[in-house]
Design a protein around this nucleic acid. Structure first.
Lengths: 153, 153
DNA sequence: TGGATATATATGGAATACCATGGAAAATTA
DNA sequence: TAATTTTCCATGGTATTCCATATATATCCA
């Protein structure tokens, strides 16, 4: 299973083009759709990115909510309605839609942050704070990665 | 299952290259990805190293958290965002990214410390102190190795 | 047992390939 | 035709590969 790992900062040119880090492209290699899916994060001022195949899995998970529950509706709206599907060009770049770039406060540089199954795109300056907060949270809440299905509620 | 054992001190050249001890390489032999994954330790001024397969396992475990929960987000950020995936070159070396070398205070030499499933990379001088402390802790707390699935919560 | 040879490992430097990036050309749309 | 989007190509920088040498470890034979 390919994972999104590490952090890479790339430039956004005036046409909104950004190189997807080559390591991330490798994680997308054997997909039917050559590209990424992006949408606004619910928790931070950043973008969330997935492989297309993972979106399908997301759909299945949402099925675990009651079909007409407001939670299901809210989540589906937040995720699917807002998502954009961006193809890679011949040189491994995508074009960030203006609205998304604005939302994530991306001026000229974009930090691709690998989070395993997904990744995020941050303004490099904002990211630094976020990182420190995450580390702090892990330490102070004594968060650990559960064995087996330990995290299931 | 790969086991990392013993301690080896190797040189870091000016390009940041270090030979991974051959014993460690043997532990990585039958892996899909020929290389190691490194990130900053949360507890010490050293680096932690894993086989790629271990990261895959971590990824699966993290999947057990709700996808957009802050716990999932914090853990993934703390673990995956900081991690780097380093391939072995033809001679069994990796190149240490500058940021990581700096964090672990590695100037020209790196001590690879086998810890079973994982290993650490230390500044050889700092390691000596750490070792004494660890031995002391084991003695005074009468620490022992749990048997079977002792680690399960 | 000692010495010599062979094997494996570690290390340094040079050649090569890859990737990110900027700009221009071609194609598409209005 | 003008404006936009998409594809293509050129370049500089960086990372990866290749080769050559030194050091240590193991093997073999006398």
């Amino acid at each position: 299973m390919p994972l999104f790992l590490s952090t890479h900062v790339n430039k956004v040119d005036k046409k909104g083009r950004v190189s997807v880090p080559s390591g991330f492209r490798a994680a997308l290699a054997d997909q039917s759709f050559q590209g990424v899916v992006l949408f606004r994060s619910n928790n931070h001022e950043c973008l969330e990115g997935f492989a297309y195949s993972y979106m399908e899995e997301l759909g299945e998970r949402l099925d675990n909510f009651d079909l007409f529950s407001s939670e299901q509706d809210d989540l589906a709206t937040a995720i699917f309605a807002d998502a954009v599907q961006l193809p890679l060009d011949g040189d491994g770049r995508v074009i960030l839609p203006e609205g998304l770039a604005e939302f994530a406060l991306l001026d000229g540089r974009a930090a691709f942050v690998g989070l395993g199954q997904k990744f995020q795109i941050w303004n490099p300056d904002k990211l630094e704070k976020r990182r420190n907060n995450a580390r702090k949270a892990v330490r102070s809440n004594a968060l650990t990665v559960p064995k087996g299905n330990g995290g299931a509620s």
